[in-house]
């Protein structure tokens, strides 16, 4: 009987000690802030487009941290969903985007300056202040800053904003991945017979 009591007492003592230790540790090494939100935010593409239903990427990151689905970011595409699933240990969901939406194609806004009337509505709509201009003077998109969120297209009263696909330049072009094992690509370009004189 005493043995049992001793055993129980010892267990209780151990439980108390470890409980105190854990409690102390959780207080002592408390993590400030909510790093998971920052980690999620870092994975989001920062287009600030609001297609997820939140007024920016950070609010959506907060929503995801609070349990919202992590598949509502069309600009991020499948890769972002996968990355988020990995980070959060959640199931990989299919991207919540329109079937025909051209997910993954990078675009920037372009203002047809001849038609711009200088209403400043797009400037107000731009979430990253990437449109320059003043009232009654034409506006211009700073291409480098544009995230391609297309929030400026809707407010334009004269529909002079186009979303143009970003074409590769000599600076941004990269080699494509080879076709892979057992496959070959057509690598030949037709060339006319060498002209002798003027080009």
């Amino acid at each position: 009987m005493t043995t049992i009591l001793i055993a129980v007492a010892a267990l209780l003592l151990l439980a108390a000690v470890f409980g105190a230790l854990l409690g102390f540790a959780s207080e002592k090494f408390k993590v400030e802030g909510d790093p998971i939100v920052e980690q999620i935010d870092a994975l989001l593409p920062q287009t600030q487009c609001g297609q997820c239903g939140h007024p920016g990427c950070l609010p959506y990151a907060e929503a995801i941290a609070n349990g919202e689905d992590h598949n509502k970011c069309p600009p991020g595409g499948e890769q972002t969903v996968i990355d988020l699933s990995e980070l959060l240990g959640r199931e990989v969901l299919t991207l919540d985007a329109d079937e025909d939406a051209d997910v993954g194609i990078k675009k920037v806004a372009y203002i047809r300056e001849d038609e711009c009337i200088g209403c400043t509505k797009c400037i107000q709509a731009c979430p990253v202040d990437a449109i320059l201009g003043a009232a009654k003077l034409m506006h211009t998109v700073i291409t480098d800053e544009c995230t391609g969120c297309d929030l400026c297209v809707e407010p334009c009263p004269v529909d002079c904003i186009d979303m143009l696909e970003v074409k590769p330049t000599l600076g941004t072009w990269t080699w494509h991945k080879p076709e892979g094992i057992g496959l070959r690509s057509d690598t030949s370009v037709p060339v006319n017979v060498i002209p002798v004189v003027n080009l």
């Binding site: 690598t187 030949s188 060339v191 006319n192």
Partner: peptide, 8 residues
């Protein structure tokens, strides 16, 4: 005539 364009 066609020219092959491949990586080195």
């Amino acid at each position: 005539m066609a020219l092959i364009t491949v990586s080195s």
